[in-house]
Nucleic acid binder design. Structure first.
Length: 612
DNA sequence: GCCGTTTTCGGCCCGACTGTTTTCAGTCG
């Protein structure tokens, strides 16, 4: 059985159909609609194969109409889509890769194919080497050279950059430009500001008294390898590391409009502009303008914008609340009358997944607690690896018992922060845990995580995770899929089933904030939030600097619309304790006795005496 | 192909930059 889910496979087929349609010159709106279906399928956490007999529910999904629903059902029943086969028969298979070369769009690829005999990347290279390409129309010296460099770049560069790699780089560039005396405002935008798990290129926005000087400061930065474009308002460079950085220079009065435009997502912007048109406006990167039926750009005719300086102003004029960047993906955010109060970095009050030198961490218990205290946390959980994680020096039951004693001793003499004795317990391939229940019951907190058998079939992975989540002594499901961004696929469970089990058993699902993981991923968080599940945001710290990863976990959480109310790390120590103890039978009976009533799972009966 | 408190038909976002052009097509975001 294939590891890939029906959703992912279908998304691939629709993406390919859209690409071929571009090459055959299909109606662009039809192409856009097909691309949207692909994107919708990618984001969907619901497994479409469960809807094979319910086409009406398919059509109810925004972006999927009658036609696509039929094709999806066709695929689910027969394993193929006839239209996909027909379309792909129209062009050489390798031509789709040529479409992926930066600078080459459908028109040029079509020309290269029909007039230049190019059918794939290899024949494109041959055409470049033999010089036949220069005989084609609109193929001047520069264009040919650019294609050559793009191919060269493609062969050397890897995939998109990870969030945690791009962020420090962007902050460095922002600092560099801020230091330039004539720059008024500068900020990063794009997918970085939206907190996507990977970043294609870094977008920087600036206003300056002398734009040309600012542009010069940008293109002459130390590690610029090639200036890709350099205009009045827009410049692009490629750094030696291979990252592309775009700078957009704008008037300070229009900074908000530009920030909105440059932050995206493209889909959010398109939806916003469509809304603007319906309300009698025109929206571009210079502002929101009254629509006067003149097709030329309003700002070039001296038309005054009704809003431009701040993003908030533009949203307000359109009748919308300001939308946090992480939500701007055209996934329903524009239909909201009120934006939920998303979790913020400052809301996080504890770390519930961290390692010490007992397993593979670099800090002692004291050092770990000191760092957590320095960060203003009320609680730190010591959760070293369990015995099966041999490569991480996982603890045998005997060593864990000693470790618990040691943690208790350190906790007793440490003031100002609660130190919990915990474990990150391996979830075996069958869903059983790496320690016996009597040992697990001695721990204050149990994080159960998959570490091995990460290529098992989706159905088995689902059963495995559901079993772990339902285990009465487990508090948190750690990095649920085990994926590593750009490196390892990880498990493909039916996440809706795992989430449903988590809700039923009051177990939290972790967003592992390490930028290599970010697991749960954003749309899984969204499904968890929609289902009412508890979510934890942990850094999985192995050293002090790992605590800095928290921001990436929070951004991922915000992309999934998580609020502080559903995030266990944002709770007061009292409420956290009650939840932890609700999964400790002996302790719970004490709690019940003390409270003189029933301590209902997951609820905080004494929310009033919150933070202390 | 999708969608609808203006519409079930007729719309569907907007501008900058490049390169090859004599006024614009193609690509990108």
């Amino acid at each position: 059985m294939c590891i890939m889910s029906s959703n992912a496979e279908l998304a691939r087929l629709f993406t390919e159909m859209a690409a071929v349609m571009e090459l055959t010159g299909e109606n662009p709106f039809r192409i856009r609609a097909t691309e949207k279906v692909a994107r919708t399928l990618e984001d969907l956490t619901l497994d479409v194969s469960t809807l094979v007999d319910e086409p009406k529910r398919l059509v109810a999904i925004e972006g999927i109409g009658e036609g696509s629903a039929q094709r999806i059902v066709e695929f689910l029943r027969t394993g193929r889509i006839a239209e996909h086969d027909e379309l792909l028969a129209k062009v050489p298979k390798g031509l789709l890769a040529v479409l992926g070369v930066p600078g080459l769009g459908p028109k040029t690829v079509k020309l290269l194919w029909e007039k230049g005999g190019v059918t794939d990347l290899a024949s494109l290279k041959e055409a470049l080497d033999s010089g036949t390409i220069e005989k084609l129309p609109r193929m001047g010296e520069k264009t040919v050279q650019n294609i050559r460099e793009s191919l060269d770049f493609m062969s050397k560069s890897s995939s998109r950059m990870r969030l945690g790699e791009a962020m420090p780089l962007a902050e460095e560039i922002v600092a560099h430009l801020s230091a330039s005396a004539n720059v008024e405002r500068v900020d990063f935008a794009g997918s970085l500001r939206r907190g996507r798990e990977t970043i294609g290129d870094i977008d920087i926005l600036a206003s300056a008294k002398r734009p040309s000087a600012a542009s010069k400061a940008f293109t002459s930065m130390g590690d610029v390898q090639k200036v890709l474009a350099s205009g009045e308002t827009k410049s692009s460079v490629r750094l030696k590391s291979g990252v592309q950085v775009d700078l957009r220079l704008v008037d300070d009065e229009a900074f908000g409009a530009a920030l909105l435009y440059f932050t995206g997502s493209k889909e959010h912007n398109v939806a916003l502009r469509e809304l603007a048109v319906r309300k009698g406006y025109r929206l571009n990167e210079y502002g929101l303008f009254p629509d006067d039926d003149d097709p030329s750009p309003p700002q070039s005719r001296g038309v005054r914008p009704v809003a431009a300086a701040k993003e908030e102003d533009i949203y307000r004029k359109l009748g919308l609340p300001w939308c946090p960047p992480e939500m701007r993906e055209d996934r329903g955010e524009l239909a909201l009358k009120k934006i939920p109060k998303l979790i913020e970095l400052d809301d996080i009050k504890c770390e519930l997944h961290a390692h010490t030198t007992a397993s593979d961490g670099r800090l002692s218990i004291e050092e770990l607690a000191a760092e957590a205290k320095r960060r203003g946390f009320h609680t730190i959980a010591v959760t070293d690896h369990s015995r099966s994680s041999v490569q991480a020096n996982g603890l045998s039951p005997e060593r864990l018992r000693e470790h618990i004693e040691e943690i208790r001793r350190v906790a007793a003499r440490t003031k100002g922060i609660a130190i919990l004795a915990g474990s990150e317990v391996d979830i075996h391939a069958d869903g059983s845990l790496d320690y016996d229940d009597d040992l697990l019951a001695e721990l204050d907190i149990v994080v159960a995580s998959p570490h091995a058998s990460l290529r098992q079939e989706p159905a088995k992975a689902t059963d495995r995770l559901v079993r772990a989540v339902k285990h009465p002594l487990v508090h948190i499901l750690g990095h649920p899929t085990g994926r590593l961004i750009n490196a390892r696929e990880g498990l493909h469970p039916d996440m809706d089933k795992v989430i449903a089990a988590a809700v039923a058993s009051n177990t939290a699902l972790e967003i592992n904030a390490n930028y290599l993981r970010l697991d749960l991923r954003d749309h899984h968080v969204r499904s968890a939030v929609d289902a009412g599940a508890l979510v934890a945001i942990n850094t999985d710290a192995h050293s002090t600097d790992h605590f800095d990863f928290l921001r990436y976990g929070v951004m991922t959480a915000r992309r999934g619309w998580l609020t502080g109310e559903r995030c266990v790390n944002a709770w007061s120590s009292t409420r956290l304790r009650e939840w932890l103890e609700s999964k400790r039978p002996s302790a719970r009976s004490r709690t019940v006795a003390a409270a003189g009533g029933s301590a209902k799972k997951g609820r905080s009966p004494r929310k009033a005496r919150a933070d202390r």
